[in-house]
C-alpha cells in the first residue's frame, strides 16, 4: 500500500511542472493573478462535481476544525502566483529548482518539529543522505 502513495506523489510532481509551464503561457495573455484565479475558480467547479458524486468524507468538519487548518487555499495562491510570474523570466527548470529548495527546507523543519499537525519524525541518517543527494542533483541541473 505504501508504495502507491509514492507513485501518487511522483505523479503530483509531474502535474506540477506541466502546470507551471502551461500557466506561464496563459499568464502572458490574461495576466498573472487572473491565471491563478482561473485555476482556482474552475478547480472549485471540478471538485464541487467530484465531491457531489464521490465525496464520502465530512465537509462540515470545516466549522469545528482549528482555524489554521483552513489556510491551505491561501498558501496555494502564494505558490501558484509566484510560479506564473517567474517562469517567463527564468524558465521552468530554474523556477522549479527555487521552489524545490524552498520545499525541502520547509518539509524537513515541519516534520522534525511536528509542526502544522504533521507526525513528528526525527531526522535520521537516510533522510540526511536523501537531502544531500537532492542538493547535488539541484546543483547539477542549475
Amino acid at each position: 500500500m505504501r508504495y502507491i502513495s509514492y507513485i501518487l506523489a511522483l505523479l503530483a510532481g509531474t502535474a506540477l511542472s506541466f502546470e507551471g509551464a502551461i500557466y506561464g503561457e496563459l499568464g502572458k495573455t490574461i495576466g498573472k493573478l487572473e491565471t491563478s484565479f482561473y485555476n482556482f475558480l474552475v478547480g472549485s467547479i471540478i471538485l464541487g462535481l467530484l465531491w457531489l458524486f464521490f465525496g464520502k468524507g465530512k465537509l462540515s468538519y470545516v466549522v469545528e476544525a482549528p482555524k489554521w487548518t483552513l489556510l491551505g487555499g491561501v498558501l496555494g495562491v502564494v505558490y501558484l502566483t509566484s510560479i506564473v510570474i517567474s517562469v517567463p523570466f527564468v524558465g521552468v527548470g530554474i523556477t522549479m529548482v527555487a521552489v524545490i529548495i524552498g520545499q525541502l527546507v520547509m518539509s524537513i523543519v515541519i516534520e522534525h518539529y511536528g509542526w502544522l499537525g504533521s507526525k513528528k519524525s526525527k531526522i535520521n541518517k537516510e533522510k540526511i543522505l536523501a537531502v544531500i543527494s537532492m542538493v547535488i542533483a539541484l546543483i547539477l541541473v542549475y
Binding site: 502513495s5 506523489a9 506540477l16 506541466f18 507551471g20 523556477t95 524545490i100 525541502l104 537532492m134
Partner: peptide, 16 residues
C-alpha cells in the same frame, strides 16, 4: 511531509 515532498520534487524535476 518529507517523503511526499521529495517524491513530488523528483517528478517535478524530471518533467521540468
Amino acid at each position: 511531509v518529507i517523503a511526499t515532498n521529495i517524491t513530488v520534487i523528483i517528478g517535478q524535476l524530471v518533467i521540468g
